[in-house]
Nucleic acid binder design. Structure first.
Lengths: 180, 180
DNA sequence: CATGTGTGTGAGTGCACACTTACAAACAGG
DNA sequence: CCTGTTTGTAAGTGTGCACTCACACACATG
């Protein structure tokens, strides 16, 4: 045995998050994921229950990484006030998505929510993130809502490439958004 | 001649917005658009420059309809203050996307911005909407930014079906969002 | 070393779908 | 009524891709 199946699954999931992030569910052949993971397409199908199972598992991994990053960010704020903790989480999120994979994967997953299993995975992911953000920061519902609203705005900015647009309307939308 | 090409193009674009909204660019065969429009697939290819040209044209139609709705909404607020005009636009947008087609199309388009022509169409669309919202309302950049942030949050709520989720975290995210 | 179990692949198979081509019918103008 | 133009389609063609299957190699255990 060159490797255990569990270890392979982990590397495949990393490759899957990146690949799906770039080209989305339907336009990403599992051969692309397999190649990025350095194994054959056939073995990917043995490790996961079809392309759909692979995508759902990748969604789990994506949100897992987000929660971990937010935890680390919140730790930097210690037990400061809700606003401070939220800002620390925002900074952590901005750093995390510098490579764009996690952000783009979320956008891609949102676009395929007509598949029930994917919709459920997206809900489960945001459930984890939202409950964590709320409980860890102690912020009000309205503050948590604002946190996610500007997070979603960040998704638009990145997918549309608005950081690169010098026109006033784009500057207005990107003003104060951290990092991208 | 049963119809003029220009009239056909319009009906095809309506069908295309609906079809692409539901299943996205890559998972929507142009046969589906053709069937919804009541014509043959071959004729769709004569009317538009490939599937990509059809999608880009549909994006134009989508943002066009959004701007028209916002104009009508703003008209209802007359020349009140920026905040009132923004709220009137928000209400108009909420009504407009009751059928979900325009909202879902935007999400789908965002997911396919790795295709340069689509990215440009998305930018052009938001350029129209954002400049109109800013100039018509006279609101500050920060207000306009907030308007779009909560609009994007609305996209998440609808795609993930959060209106149907009774748990507290989902209630926090959907609180005060008009309509869905 | 025989046998079993888990890891891994090459070579298909079948189907969906983007796009083309050859052809037909409706109308317009002279 | 004949000729050209526009509207429209049926029937392909080629390709990409999800998924399968038969098979091979690595390692453990008695």
């Amino acid at each position: 045995m060159r490797s255990t199946a569990e270890a392979r699954r982990a590397t495949v999931l990393n490759a899957a998050v990146s690949a799906f992030a770039r080209t989305g569910f339907h336009a990403t052949p599992v051969t692309a994921v397999a190649a990025a993971a350095g194994i054959s397409e056939a073995y990917v199908f043995r490790l996961f229950a079809g392309k759909l199972g692979l995508f759902v598992a990748a969604a789990g991994a994506c949100f897992e990484r987000i929660v971990v990053a937010l935890e680390a960010g919140a730790e930097r704020a210690g037990d400061a006030g809700p606003q401070e903790v939220l800002e620390a989480m925002g900074d952590a999120y901005a750093e995390l998505i510098a490579d764009r994979d996690l952000l783009l994967f979320q956008v891609q997953a949102q676009a395929v929510t007509d598949v029930p299993e994917i919709a459920e995975a997206v809900r489960a992911g945001y459930r984890r993130v939202a409950t964590f953000v709320g409980s860890r920061s102690g912020a009000s519902d309205a503050q948590v809502q604002q946190f996610f609203a500007y997070g979603q705005l960040c998704h638009l900015i990145v997918t549309a490439g608005l950081e690169q647009v010098p026109e006033p309307w784009a500057r207005a939308l990107t003003a104060g958004i951290r990092h991208p």
